[in-house]
């Protein structure tokens, strides 16, 4: 017993001498590209002195994690990644409502995103859907240059087109939902069936088609245009196409996790991430999405949303889990299984 007491006293002394002032903390789930996440972490820490723990996972993985942790949340803020899982999280009550003072500086679409989720999420960037092709491979195979969605149905592209599987990728689901909205449900699925004949692989991840095009493993990849621009700017022989019929888009979002352990830090991050200064950081890491703050810097290489024909994408309807399940099931049986 005496010995134990000695241990306890010694332990207390050691602990007393080493305990530091508890600093503010933030657990940050990031669903953008790795270097962007790291830059955001570093700059936010530098600006506020808050110690940030960042985990980078794709938006799907992060959603799964937040859902699994819902009865005991570990994360505080979730930044980046396509809007649908953020909307779904809002729908399932995994994230909490917050009205930032930065709202006045934001573009309309960012606020519409917040509206459709009862303020549980907000738009931080957006990007239009399109496709990119590998110039060298196109020439090598004597293929004509595509300009519209319907061009991709031409028999000459058989085995040259790649897109992700909408069951596993938010990008591909956006493609499916875009076609349904652009051509109507019947014609949209007719298009997907025609496209299916030319597809060489349904990849798992959304941006994989353009990455494999960049490496010369594929000719045409259906992706978000900023992903294609990034490959082109990196020096790969990629050309970006904004389809002539018009196209859908995503709104990259940010949400505060319900039951966050450090809600104040999360709100500070939220406000900061909506500022023009924070959003301008994207250019340093070749992220060519359109920022939601009106005052942010943009790159001349970035696709100009105002010059692209955008459809009136219904995020509320096509982001809901029932509509999503219905479309995916239909795609599985009528397109993929054929």
């Amino acid at each position: 017993m005496k010995l134990l007491l000695k241990f306890a006293v010694a332990g207390a002394l050691v602990a007393g001498s080493t305990v530091a002032q508890a600093a503010d903390k933030l657990t940050f789930y990031c669903s953008a590209q790795e270097d962007w996440c790291q830059l955001m972490t570093k700059e936010f820490s530098a600006a506020t002195g808050i110690k940030v723990n960042m985990t980078r996972k794709s938006s799907g993985e992060t959603f799964a994690q937040i859902k699994a942790e819902s009865s005991n949340p570990k994360g505080d803020i979730w930044w980046g990644g396509t809007g649908d899982p953020h909307l779904q999280a809002a729908e399932e009550g995994l994230t909490m409502a917050y009205k930032s003072s930065m709202r006045s500086e934001l573009q309309d679409w960012a606020l519409r995103q917040a509206e459709s989720a009862n303020d549980k999420t907000i738009g931080i960037y957006s990007g239009a859907l399109g496709y990119g092709y590998n110039e060298d491979l196109l020439k090598k195979n004597n293929l004509s240059v595509p300009a519209c969605w319907k061009d991709l149905l031409k028999p000459e592209y058989k085995g040259h087109v790649q897109m992700a599987n909408p069951n596993s990728s938010g990008t591909a689901y956006t493609t499916l939902a875009t076609m349904v909205q652009l051509f109507g449900e019947d014609q949209g699925f007719e298009f997907m069936r025609g496209l299916n004949k030319n597809i060489n692989q349904y990849t798992k991840s959304g941006s994989a088609p353009i990455k494999s095009a960049a490496k010369g493993e594929n000719t045409i990849g259906i992706v978000f245009m900023h992903d294609a621009v990034k490959q082109a700017v990196s020096g790969f022989p990629i050309k970006v196409v904004a389809p002539c019929e018009g196209t859908g888009y995503e709104i990259g979002s940010m949400s505060i996790i319900e039951g966050a352990r450090n809600p104040d830090s999360a709100k500070k991050f939220y406000d900061w991430a909506l500022s023009a200064a924070a959003q301008s950081l994207a250019l340093q890491v070749k992220a060519y999405q359109v920022p939601s703050n009106n005052g942010s810097k943009t790159s001349p290489s970035a696709p100009d949303l105002s010059s692209i024909k955008l459809i009136d994408y219904d995020f509320k309807k096509y982001g809901s889990s029932s509509e999503r399940k219905r479309l995916l099931k239909k795609w599985d049986t009528e397109v993929y299984a054929q």
Binding site: G60, E61, A64, D84, P166, N167, A172, L328
Partner: peptide, 11 residues
Amino acid sequence: FFAIVGAQYDQ
């Protein structure tokens, strides 16, 4: 893996 992390979130 993709049933969990994919767009269907079907645990």
